[in-house]
Design a protein around this nucleic acid. Structure first.
Lengths: 120, 120
DNA sequence: TATATTGGTATACAATAGTATAGTGATCGT
DNA sequence: ACGATCACTATACTATTGTATACCAATATA
């Protein structure tokens, strides 16, 4: 029903607007560290340093950058506690959790694909 | 059933192997030109130069590279005809078409996301 | 004979993504 | 007083991705 094949015409402009929301999602979960962060936070909330330790290999620069990006897009929630020193808890929003269904579909196709490619 | 949350443990290694097939798919349809090529080919088969004209802005270098990549992954079929000069027809395989369902799910979430972000 | 089209490739460059390393100021336990 | 921990930030670099431009041999059209 939402497939491009149901669109009677397919001018470059139409293709572009068809692709736009797909690209949005790919940009949102693409890159080297977005998925590791999202998956880690899908278990429970973590503090900054905890995430840094849990996600092996990530630098604080990337972690900070990606968390901000995910926060802007409403997937991650950042909560400062006025403890001393301040602690910051990062967690997935319900909206962020809703990505789970999408990731599952992508993952299922990916598992099949992996089998197909490996068997050749 | 395939969600990460159903996994009792979540060591870095387990997260990594959970993510692997997802990453495969993102790499497969990610990048600037993969989706435009896939979507264009989902209508009908095209010759090389036709694709170059249809996909505005792409260079033959990128088109060639991405088509090879898609062919290796079984999404695109390349057929040479022994005409003079030889013509080459690129088309989506049935397997390539099966990505449509995945793209649809991603796109639906992306459309909702776009609305959400724009309304803020 | 001159020019355009076919399906690309070669080389060099620019832009973006990610890494490495060091450092911040406040606070806490020893 | 000393070092460690908190949540980051700054600067400089490397690696990957994509662009620009030119070119190829064979054939078709003007």
């Amino acid at each position: 029903m939402n497939s491009i094949k149901d669109t009677p015409k397919h001018t470059p402009a139409e293709c572009k607007s068809f692709i736009l929301p797909v690209r949005d999602v790919i940009d949102l979960i693409g890159g080297k560290w977005k998925l590791p962060i999202i998956v880690t936070l899908s278990f429970k909330s973590y503090r900054f340093k905890e995430l840094e330790r849990e996600i092996v290999g990530i630098t604080p620069r990337m972690l900070s950058k990606e968390l901000k990006d995910l926060e802007i897009n409403g997937l991650v929630d950042r909560k400062e506690s006025a403890t001393t020193p301040i602690t910051v808890a990062y967690s997935l929003t319900n909206y962020g959790l809703s990505l789970d269904k999408v990731i599952e579909v992508v993952r299922d196709w990916g598992i099949t694909h992996r089998k197909k490619i490996m068997s050749k």
